Amino acid sequence: MRREPTFTDLVARADALAVPGRRRILGIAGAPGAGKSTLAARLAAALGDRAALVGLDGFHLAQAELDRLDRAERKGAPDTFDADGYVDLLRRLRTSTDKIVYAPEFRREIEEPVANAVPVPRAVPLVITEGNYLLVWPAVRPLLDEVWYLDSDPELRRKRLFDRHVAYGRTAEQARDRTDGSDERNARLVASTAGTADLVLRATP
């Protein structure tokens, strides 16, 4: 029976990627509510100034644009992100000699992305990026040195999503519809790519 990596194991594996003088990118993928952002933040904190955290959610389309495109009720689906912008940022993070590259950040308190919110100094050897579609979009995978897939318990994942929707203003009925509807469709799409990850984590360490 395979031993599930501990958080200490994961820090050591990420640390091995953080080679001074080189820029590497570690991706953490998984379905909505899997715990990707929590794990990524813990890893970044453990590595200190040798890692920077950049989330795919910073590339959500603005709410006004989602409304214009009639996609607001599917927010979080693949076509509600600026996928090309995310790919361009990953390329720049890998190759730019600029002193600092700025990345956007998604602010849940306003449900909007904020541009130029995350500074990534050139001296930082490891960028950790997390999001649903790292293994779904073909242009992303070649830009990542490793991808870890977080496969959390489905019921726990769905509860997290439901609670999140309620916390940000939806009624219980609206939260349930979103969790059982677009969120679950997105989760199935993401789960179909798990086999292409370098490491599959069966539980949040």
Rank of each mutant, 00 (worst) to 15 (best):
E184W: 05
Y86C: 00
V190P: 07
Y102K: 03
R23G: 07
G27L: 02
A64R: 12
D82F: 09
V19C: 13
L53N: 03
S152M: 07
A62G: 11
G35H: 04
T179M: 15
V101M: 01
Y86Q: 02
T204K: 06
V101L: 03
R170H: 10
D183P: 05
Y133K: 02
D163A: 15
P205Y: 04
R160W: 07
R71M: 12
L161C: 12
K75E: 12
L47S: 06
L189I: 15
A34Y: 00
R91Q: 13
D145R: 02
V140L: 03
L150W: 07
R50M: 06
L10D: 08
D180R: 05
F81E: 00
H165Y: 14
V200N: 00
V136A: 07
R3M: 13
R50V: 02
V136N: 05
T193C: 13
V87S: 01
R160T: 11
Y102G: 01
G169F: 10
Q174E: 15
R2M: 12
E73Y: 13
R108G: 04
N186G: 05
A31D: 05
L66H: 03
L143K: 02
L90K: 01
I28G: 00
T171F: 11
S37N: 08
G30S: 01
A40V: 12
A64Y: 04
G169H: 06
S182A: 13
E146P: 11
E130S: 11
F162A: 09
P125Q: 10
E173N: 06
I25L: 03
A14S: 12
R185D: 15
A44P: 04
R50A: 08
V147N: 00
V136H: 08
P138Q: 02
P78H: 08
V11P: 04
L90R: 00
P142V: 09
A18M: 06
A83P: 10
R92N: 01
D9V: 12
P154R: 03
R23N: 00
E130H: 05
A191T: 10
